[in-house]
Design a protein around this nucleic acid. Structure first.
Lengths: 283, 283
DNA sequence: GCGAGCGATACCTTCCGGGTATCGTCGCAG
DNA sequence: CTGCGACGATACCCGGAAGGTATCGCTCGC
């Protein structure tokens, strides 16, 4: 009954679906099934009813779910206390510049509530670094958006937001209910400066690099759209700003809010932050 | 920071000596050192000061010791609660017959205090089965004495008691301060019935099988000594009984109180019982 | 009746946790 | 001051567990 196994169990118990739980755990389904079976053997009781109707918790499983959550939470708190005792109780969170996501402040607040002795520093970066300083160092964990080069990083998706084209209100396409990328194929798109992560750049360009003005921040993007009709991609629920409208792009991947942190050598508090973030975004 | 690693850490922190901790954990010293180093790397702080003067806890280590104990205890309780929910909250403890060890009742009491919802059944056996019914089945864990055939069993030593020869008070050797096995080489020793564990039989015969009356219980042994001067081996601090004395045997291994349980397929509560027993015997 | 979905099984590969042997360092005794 | 013993660290090896891919068996809905 190791903690890792309990994390597996909690994932399955919450998803009530081995496949989805495996995705959440970044592993494939067979070893997860096996781990749960071993856990059941060790506990001496079956934890799930697997029927054709789906997966359900047994009474013993329900008890273990409570216990496992409490135990994992306890472990997280223990980690933090040790870090505090070691004088390493600072966590630097990288934040994607101009983010209007209200979850961020709620998240930081929730974390401070759980672990009041940890000092959280937020470092905001412009749009040209989707890792928010992770690759440059000095940042322990980044709350940002994909996609970007993941080598050396662990990435956990928190949410997916549908996106749309940001257009001038007087654009011929501004009145449409929805658009496809083909509708915008011959437009100018804004670019990021040379050296920006290619995957990130390509995403905001709807799949391929195109010509257009170079910008670094959300405000610059808006101005580029206003000034010369450059196409921008933005979140559907963003307030577009004066003179601008947003039209849903039906064939574009949603923008994924992700948490990213170094695979190794990380600040030990990162795990606790990740856990808190996942819990906060679950609602 | 898995639970197993924390158990390792607690052992080292309590022994303040890697070698002894490794013995206690039934492993060798190098992997233990490595595990602790990995834990320190993961925590991001050193937990021990290793100096030539010995091993000492750092402040962070002291905090982790508290946290780890609490966490391991929490895990044990969680185990028990799940077992209770699964309706498997019965533990059958085998006890070596005629044991006068006062720790046993204290132990059962301590366990009931920690885990009041677990029903403990005590099954007492005579001296001919040192595994107290473990090998026969129906017993989850045995509180007994070594040595015996350990195949398929895990054995944990709790204490070692010095032993002496049990002699009639009017025996020529009864007045001696101490004896060696050589002093008793030509005596009759009691035997156990055929089929009794050979190592066990040999131990109480001082190393080799000898001729003598067949007995099954402590009272029979005493009577055999009284009736015909047969030699018995018993604990130094046992009350020998009317007409009998005990003389220390200086060249005999002490008698070890041990806990034994099946290596696999065990009742999941066994681990919690073992933990409680070790804690109770530590004093 | 058949395909899709889902958990279980089979089997392979990799790596971690365990082992033994040995080293480096330090205190101590002769 | 030099050899020796104690002790933790290091080097290296091996078996098994944990992870992966491919596939099966069952059930359900169309």
């Amino acid at each position: 009954m190791e903690l890792r196994t309990l994390r597996y169990f909690v994932a399955v118990a919450e998803e009530l679906h081995f496949g989805r739980a495996a995705v959440r755990l970044h592993m494939s389904q067979p070893p997860l099934s096996r781990a749960i079976r071993r856990l059941e053997a060790e506990i001496g009781a079956s934890l799930f009813d697997r029927s054709s109707a789906g997966v359900a918790l047994t009474p013993a499983g329900a008890v273990l779910l409570d216990e496992a959550r409490a135990l994992l939470d306890h472990a997280d708190r223990a980690r933090v206390r040790v870090a505090v005792a070691a004088g390493a109780a600072t966590l630097t969170v990288g934040l994607l510049g101009d983010s209007t996501d209200p979850g961020v402040t709620r998240l930081a607040g929730a974390y401070r509530g759980r672990h009041p002795h940890v000092e959280i520093r937020v470092r905001e970066t412009d749009l040209t670094d989707p890792t928010c300083g992770l690759s440059a160092g000095g940042v322990d964990v980044a709350l940002t958006r994909g996609p970007f080069d993941k080598t050396g990083l662990t990435v956990r998706e928190l949410r997916a937001d549908p996106v749309g084209a940001l257009l001038r209100a007087d654009d011929p396409l501004a009145g449409r209910d929805s658009l496809t990328l083909a509708d915008l194929a011959d437009r100018r798109w804004f670019r990021f400066p040379a050296g920006t992560d290619p995957g990130w750049q390509a995403y905001w360009n709807g799949g391929r690099l195109r010509e257009g003005p170079v910008v670094r921040a959300v405000q610059e993007c808006r101005q580029a759209v206003l000034w010369n009709g450059t196409v921008g991609v933005t979140l559907l629920d963003h307030e577009p700003g004066e003179g601008l409208t947003v039209v849903p792009l039906v064939d574009m991947e949603p923008s994924r809010v992700v948490l990213a942190w170094p695979e190794a050598g990380a600040n030990p508090l990162v795990r606790t932050f990740v856990a808190a973030a996942i819990a906060a975004y679950r609602d």
